[in-house]
Write a protein that binds this DNA or RNA. Sequence first.
DNA 1: TTTTGCAGGCGTCAATCGAG
DNA 2: CTCGATTGACGCCTGCAAAA
Length: 268
Amino acid sequence: MWWHQHNLCFRHPVEEDYSGDLEKKVATIAETDESAESEGVIDSHKRREILSRRPSYRKILNELSSDVPGVPKIEEEKSEEEGTPPNIATMAVPTSIYQTSTGQYIAIAQGGTIQISNPGSDGVQGLQALTMTNSGAPPPGATIVQYAAQSADGTQQFFVPGSQVVVQAATGDMPTYQIRAPTTALPQGVVMAASPGSLHSPQQLAEEATRKRELRLMKNREAAKECRRRKKEYVKCLESRVAVLEVQNKKLIEELETLKDICSPKTD
DNA sequence: TTTTGCAGGCGTCAATCGAG
DNA sequence: CTCGATTGACGCCTGCAAAA
């Protein structure tokens, strides 16, 4: 069984090499059309570019689309409806992440979005994006957070689903957060870590490192998915370009034959 | 029914790029 | 120079179809 699985671990030609073959094919076909133009001296900068890492698929495809009409561009930002779970309004990169004693992560992103992720849930799926508003009282069991600017005890409160509030204490320059029931002052969960600057014990440092690693892995996971999606799109684009160029090439060859016949008629 | 081979997807690591 | 984004490479898993 081991060797069977080991066999499966070889690189897949489709995923790893196929796009490279297509690129060569496109280049070869294109050369027959524009060989005069492509003949030139490659300067050192160009050579260095070729030898070093290729540009991203987004870049290549966008450049291709500017050259060839009809080639779709890869969007800079994906639209919301594409693969976004219904309970997530935005997926902004969090600027601050806090962990509660119950293991929940609270991420406060740019633009005022609060995301709460549950431990054990799969990253993005466990996130709840909460939009802040500045007016009104939180209805019981509200699914949208209501942001109260300041409460009587000098704290800022974010009301979250489940009849709880996330309370930001106004203590110095380092914010701390607590999850409380809105009607009582007793904390249900107390923040374990507020910011990296406040960490001292080895355990806290280890937890911070683990948290950072988890975040990095989660982001890279999403990035890899997105990269593969772009690559597929890129390969599709190359395939269609190959088809177009092959037809074009065939037409040109036929035209050439016709012109040859006209210019040099047989002398029988 | 079980085995085998293949295709495709996923998560992770590491190298590199590019913006600030 | 730093840090986030991007992507090649690797290993693993799963589903499917053909062969045994």
